[in-house]
Amino acid sequence: MEQLRAMQQAFMGHLLGRPSDIAAAIQSTPEADAPTRLGIYASGYRLRLKEALETDYPQLHAYLGDMLFDQLMDAYIDRYPSHVFSLRDYGRHMPELLDGLDDFPALPMVRELERIERAFNHSFDAADSAPPDPAMLSQLPPEAWPGMQLRLHASVVVLHNRWNSFPVWRALSRGETPPEPVEDTAPWLIWRKALVSRYRALEAPEAAALHTALNGGDFSALCEALLAFHPADEVPREAVSLLQTWITEEMLADIVTDR
């Protein structure tokens, strides 16, 4: 298989735009010589990868415009040959590429738009789980509450941005002119409910509670996080209210107790 392997490596080199002697292994015909025939594969390779990135980042594309987004895609494709079997995962190094850039326009906004679209892509086909039955809460004895663990649905992502990237993303996704960049640190939530990806702005207490749950904190830790925002006697009611919202909104995958 040495010959076949060498041929495949030379063919792949050609696709990647590296020096390759593959043309010598290909028959030319009067209507199309070997380089012309091989060129069909080389242009197809780049087009396919670009299509995958365009599918992943429609609003980043809209924000940058065709020319800049194309530059970004070319830089990505040159730097990251695909090592995944599904094109769904091809764009996974985009944050790394953007982190390494220092002379690309509007980088802070571009990085945040990338995170937003990546979170939506993740939420689209993250693992399924049936929401827990709210009735189980009423059957829970008081001593089981503090150690209760809230497992969030796999689609849940909380984004802390520095800029108004979410309003920019929202305007772009509606085909509207995006607002000018301004600092805006409001946290946003992305998750999936009834098979559809959703988003909403988070108030600071809910963001803190979600962080606690995402980091494996139990219900007592969640209440502790809420103490920064509410008087102690109101915290249990606020915490239960959040819990009910998360169940209704299909943000929870499971509630785990010691019982």
Binding site: R5, Q8, Q9, F11, M12, L15, L16, Y41, G44, Y45, R48, L49, A52, P81, S82, H83, V84, F85, L87, Y90
Partner: peptide, 9 residues
């Protein structure tokens, strides 16, 4: 693919 690089073709 070859050398774990996928052409997606």
């Amino acid at each position: 693919q070859v050398d774990h690089t996928n052409s997606h073709d």
